[in-house]
């Protein structure tokens, strides 16, 4: 890991022991705290293009989700529930608490986005501002898997199959699988959006069988406990209280992204948002356009004092 390109020069590297996991983070910048949560099949590296600008106004805490990158699940017998978004959200409450950040903003993408909205629902007093990139809730996403997007979202079913089946299949050629997903989900259907340094991080993580297993567990939780918890919240009428901005990739054709605000509104009546002209990976495909929407929203919602 030490030989990987430095994508966050000047940022501290800290590891936090939380309940059941060791969370690797990069920390830098100054201003109100902002937690950046990456998605699949990536690592904390995905924020490197937007971090310098964000760091001018915010203290950035940039972790790897448990099981991803350099963050590990400690318990050897940890089952799928150890990858529940509720559990992952607790990781970051603990990390932020350890850093003395009682309240903070969250900018989150993909799987990290699921952790981010879960944190906002479970710990409303912690979250001052929530920005989600290219997601709707896990429950809504399952409800929305339909004939026009089931092929596009095959990995939700594939990765959720019992171990070790997807692990074995992916294990036959991990780099091919990684590169395929990364390119398939961009607007340009290739790897051109990804910085070679960031790709080196993604490939280094994905080359480790334990990371591939953990990411499958993430999706198994996403097929079982995560939507169950979402359904409980929906039934109880729980809402996201924090100011919320939902952005999504405008070139994506997958069902829900054509109407994400309608899908978010029952969870967060005051949600705002719009598409960014790119595929799934907003912070890497369209960092400037993403910043142009995220910075004013954070300035407005994370004002000090």
């Amino acid at each position: 890991m030490t030989s990987l390109p430095e994508l966050y020069p000047g940022f501290e590297r800290r590891v936090f022991a939380v309940d059941g996991a060791r969370i690797h983070t990069r920390i830098g910048g100054s201003g109100p705290p902002l937690l950046l949560l990456h998605g699949y099949p990536q690592t904390h590296a995905c924020w490197h293009k937007v971090a310098p600008e964000l760091a001018r106004r915010h203290t950035l805490i940039i972790p790897d989700l448990r099981g991803y990158g350099d963050s590990t699940v400690v318990a050897a017998d940890a089952g799928t529930d150890a990858y529940a978004k509720r559990v992952m959200a607790r990781d970051f409450v603990a990390v932020m608490q350890a850093l003395g950040h009682e309240r903070f903003g969250i900018l989150c993408h993909d799987r990290g986005g699921r952790v981010g909205y879960r944190l906002a629902l479970d710990h409303p007093d912690r979250v001052r501002s929530l920005v989600t990139l290219d997601i709707v809730t896990t429950l809504d996403a399952w409800d929305d898997i339909a004939v026009d997007n089931a092929v596009g979202r095959f990995h939700w079913m594939f990765l959720a199959r019992p171990a070790p089946f997807p692990e074995t299949m992916i294990g036959h050629d991990r780099m091919f699988f990684l590169d395929y997903l990364l390119s398939q989900w961009t607007g340009t259907k290739d790897l051109s959006a990804f910085d070679p340094g960031a790709l080196a991080h993604y490939r280094a993580a994905f080359s480790r069988p334990e990371v591939v297993h953990a990411t499958c567990e993430d999706y198994r939780a996403g097929a079982t406990i995560d939507p169950r918890i979402d359904a409980e919240d929906r039934a109880a009428g729980r809402k996201i209280e924090a100011p919320m901005l939902a952005l999504w990739g405008g070139t994506r054709k997958h069902g829900f992204v054509n109407r994400p605000l309608d899908t978010w509104r029952p969870w967060c009546p005051h949600v705002r948002g719009e598409p960014v002209e790119c595929g799934h990976f907003l912070p890497e495909e369209a960092p400037d356009a993403t910043l142009a929407l995220v910075m004013p929203f954070l300035a407005e919602t994370l004002r000090t004092g």
Binding site: T168, H172, D173, F176
Partner: peptide, 25 residues
């Protein structure tokens, strides 16, 4: 049913994703 039928989405991915993984084993 969707989870059971995961292979519908997997095998329908553009070539050569499923082919490449299946050929290895």
């Amino acid at each position: 049913s969707r989870l059971r039928m995961f292979h519908w989405g997997f095998l329908a991915q553009p070539a050569p994703l499923p082919e490449s993984l299946i050929r290895r084993s």
